[in-house]
Nucleic acid binder design. Structure first.
Length: 739
DNA sequence: TATGATTCCATTTTT
DNA sequence: TGGAATCATA
């Protein structure tokens, strides 16, 4: 089962066996990163006598945590279930609850998601009479989050100018409101944990005593607070192992600090560093192409990925007329590659921004190519799901203002905006929650008697559910749907949309059933915690027979046999917001775009197709941008121009995805009238007459081979058998008779 | 209080 | 271009 020597290469082995002290594993794309982490944990438990619960492995996503846990479980045959494998946020949430007193947080805190947070900020802006044109809630929100990432509390927030003064006021009120709602936002989970450990020796001790070995995945994505968190956890014993790849750092805009990995040795001076540069995923052509892009970076840990996989097919380049044409050509390539033995679920289409997806969806739909778009509306963000969850949150913590506001008039029960506003005013005056204020409201007049009556009915409803809290979340959801008439209202609507909503509610109920059966603690609060941190539903199945469409960011960590990378034009990829330019101050942004491109390319196992368009309609404007600088960085000798109807301008070999007999009859915009070079291709057809089966020919890339068949046409191609490469279809232009 | 008109804006996204 | 968010109106 656990055979280190057999299952790991030398570098991986080093990384796994260096058990004590700080270890930095630079894990190049496709070099077996997860394997190292999971084997390391298994090794600690199986061979070093470490108790599983003394090990903490932190990840960024739930998905990564789940996979890791599964693989560790597989290696240890079930033992290892007791390891802490969780996201940074889930880890902190759990530790905060376990040590709520020391950390000075409410034990029953509610976790506010992004939307809740934004709404709270918006209310604060309004309460302070701050112009939300000058201070958009979204911007203030991200400023507060930035501050929390950098350990700046509301009190400590600078007030050097008017702008900061206003932000500070909002920040302070926001914190007060959050306190009152017994809520923590995502940033708080880390900030409160880390600040608590910094300021409170007892908390630091209590928490760090739990673990003897710390591991962190995707270390290049960590921010300052996260670095500090693991540093504090490891300071007692120094056993910290981080794994990551500086070349894949693509989240600096979210606070990730590449310096964490680039300067690891300054944070942990005695660190043992292993660089894993053997790639097990891609052909060497793909690695060469990707390396061409990333080699330009100024600050990186130098490494060149290598592989023992064959060179493989060249990288395809296709230049389309416009974005529609691009989508059609991609669709055509997808279909041909499918016939060539790459099923749809082995292929993916990547784009830089979501706005590009629409054309692909349209074209794929009209061409009847099954596809799935990753990254649309998320399950837990759907209105009906948020409604029901808000009811549950309110039951769990009646002070939860975001939840209260969401459901107090849902479904409509005649509690209008003014009534709610006045109720909140009463609450603010009395220093109590809005929910509690319902009791006081009657005395404080200015709320209409009808409003009071309805509010009380609402309160009674919630109170009656609270009495049944121990019956569990499933029961409560049933009561909510029934007692509020929520389900009834949906049924009456009798529209397709309402049906879809009920379907979603059923799915929610299904997941609650699973939860109650499987969780060791099936309580409402445990359920809410899970949901709050489980923002994605991993129903994204990559198994069904469909092409995957997604942004490059979403592709990180995945791999596909075939990758179609699209929109490779300046200003789109690398992306540049209209207006500003990549000045030296923005050089890091340019670097990040470059790494992003690298990430995209290294997702491909066997074939990589690079697409761009001469013109592109985006945001209502047509742009004519030159091809991406990243395309120019791809070494010419691994690339082939596959643009239809064009004589090759590049000295490279085609491969068989655009055989002449499959000319795009469905593609009106590819009408020859646009293409001035068509006449020349007619001449070329005459030139092939010199070739016939059996003849020996020479090609720059594959060397000498024997002609198997000649396919005449406007762009004649020849099937040639090359020793060592097999049969290749090549344009006649790129062959010469061998003497 | 719900709906339609209007305006504004425009990466990437996890927790 | 299109969507979301805000505003105006019945």
């Amino acid at each position: 089962m656990l055979d280190l020597e057999n299952d790991l290469n030398e570098r991986q082995l080093e990384a796994v066996r260096q058990v004590d002290g700080p270890v930095l594993v630079i894990a190049g794309a496709g070099s077996g990163k997860t394997r190292v982490i999971t084997y390391r944990v298994a090794h600690l438990v199986a061979h070093c006598g470490v108790a599983p619960w003394r090990i903490l492995a932190v990840t960024f996503t739930n998905k990564a945590a789940r996979e890791m846990r599964q693989r560790i479980g597989g290696l240890l045959l079930g033992r290892g279930q007791d390891c802490w494998v969780a996201t940074f946020h889930a880890t902190c949430a759990k530790l905060l609850r376990l040590h709520a007193d020391l950390a000075r947080v409410d034990k029953n805190f509610t976790i506010y998601d992004d939307g809740d947070q934004k709404a709270m900020v918006a209310r604060c802006l309004k309460a302070l009479n701050i112009d939300d044109k000058k201070f958009p809630a979204r911007a203030v929100q991200s400023e507060i989050n930035r501050a929390k990432r950098e350990f700046i509390s509301a009190d400590a927030y600078p007030r050097d100018n008017l702008y900061q003064e206003q932000i500070q006021r909002v920040y302070a009120l926001y914190e007060a409101q959050m306190q009152k709602a017994a809520a923590l936002d995502f940033a708080d989970l880390l900030f409160r944990m880390v600040r608590g450990m910094q300021e409170n020796e007892d908390l630091l001790q209590a928490v760090s005593e739990r673990f003897d070995y710390i591991l962190a995945d995707e270390f290049q994505d960590t921010n300052r607070v996260q670095l500090e968190f693991i540093r504090l956890l490891a300071q007692r014993h120094g056993n910290i192992c981080v794994v990551g790849d500086d070349d894949q750092s693509i989240y600096s805009w979210r606070g990730a600090n590449v310096e964490n990995i680039l300067g690891f040795e300054t944070h942990f001076p005695s660190a043992f560093v292993v660089t894993m540069d053997r790639n097990y995923r891609s052909t060497s052509n793909i690695l060469n192409a990707a390396h061409g892009v990333v080699a330009e970076l100024p600050n990186r840990r130098p490494k060149t990925l290598w592989t023992s996989i064959e060179a493989g097919d060249p990288i395809g380049f296709i230049e389309a007329e416009d974005e529609r044409d691009e989508a059609r050509l991609v669709a055509k390539a997808v279909a041909e590659l499918r016939d060539d033995g790459f099923p749809l679920n082995a292929q993916a289409v990547f784009y830089r921004i979501n706005a590009q997806s629409r054309v692909f969806e349209e074209v794929f739909r009209t061409m009847d190519i099954p596809h799935r778009v990753v990254g649309g509306m998320r399950f837990y963000e759907r209105a009906e799901i948020k409604d029901i969850l808000s009811y549950l949150r309110l039951i769990h913590n009646t002070a939860d203002l975001a939840a209260f506001l969401r459901v107090v008039n849902k479904p409509a029960r005649g509690i209008g905006k003014t009534t709610v506003d006045r109720l909140i005013a009463v609450a603010a005056e009395a220093g109590i929650s809005a929910f509690e204020a319902i009791d006081r409201a009657s005395g404080s007049a200015n709320i209409g008697s009808a409003g009071i009556k309805r509010l009380r009915a609402f309160r009674d409803l919630v109170v009656s559910w609270c009495a049944e809290i121990s019956a569990g979340p499933l029961h409560l959801i049933g009561r909510i749907l029934e007692d509020t008439g929520y389900l009834e209202a949906l049924k009456l609507e009798n529209t397709a949309e309402a049906d879809a909503r009920m379907e979603n509610l059923n799915e929610l109920i299904g997941s609650v059933e699973d939860f109650q059966q499987e969780a060791e603690d099936p309580s409402l609060s445990a359920f809410l915690e899970l949901i709050a941190l489980q923002t994605d539903v991993d129903t994204a199945d990559f198994d069904s027979d469909a092409v995957t469409l997604m942004t490059v960011h979403a592709a990180k960590g995945l791999e596909f046999d075939v990758v179609h990378l699209t929109g490779l034009e300046e200003d789109l990829f690398p992306y540049q917001r209209s207006g500003d330019s990549f000045t030296s101050a923005r050089a890091e942004e340019m670097d990040e775009e470059r790494r992003l491109c690298y990430v995209a390319m290294t997702r491909a196992r066997k074939r990589l197709l690079l697409n761009c368009a001469r013109s592109r309609r985006l945001f209502g404007r047509t742009r004519y941008n030159p091809v991406s600088r990243f395309l120019i960085n791809v070494p010419q000798d691994v690339m082939v121009d596959l643009t239809p109807d064009r004589p090759n301008i590049r000295p490279v070999e085609p491969f068989g995805i655009s055989a002449p007999q499959k000319e795009p009859s469905w593609s009106p915009s590819r009408d020859t009238s646009n293409h001035t070079w068509v006449d020349r291709s007619f001449d070329q057809s005459l030139e092939t007459s010199g070739l016939c089966p059996g003849q020996k020919v020479r090609n720059a890339k594959f060397g000498v081979g024997k002609v198997v068949a000649v396919r005449p046409g406007p762009r004649p191609k020849v099937d040639v058998m090359f020793p060592g490469y097999g049969k290749k279809t090549i344009m006649a232009d790129f062959l010469e008779a061998d003497v």
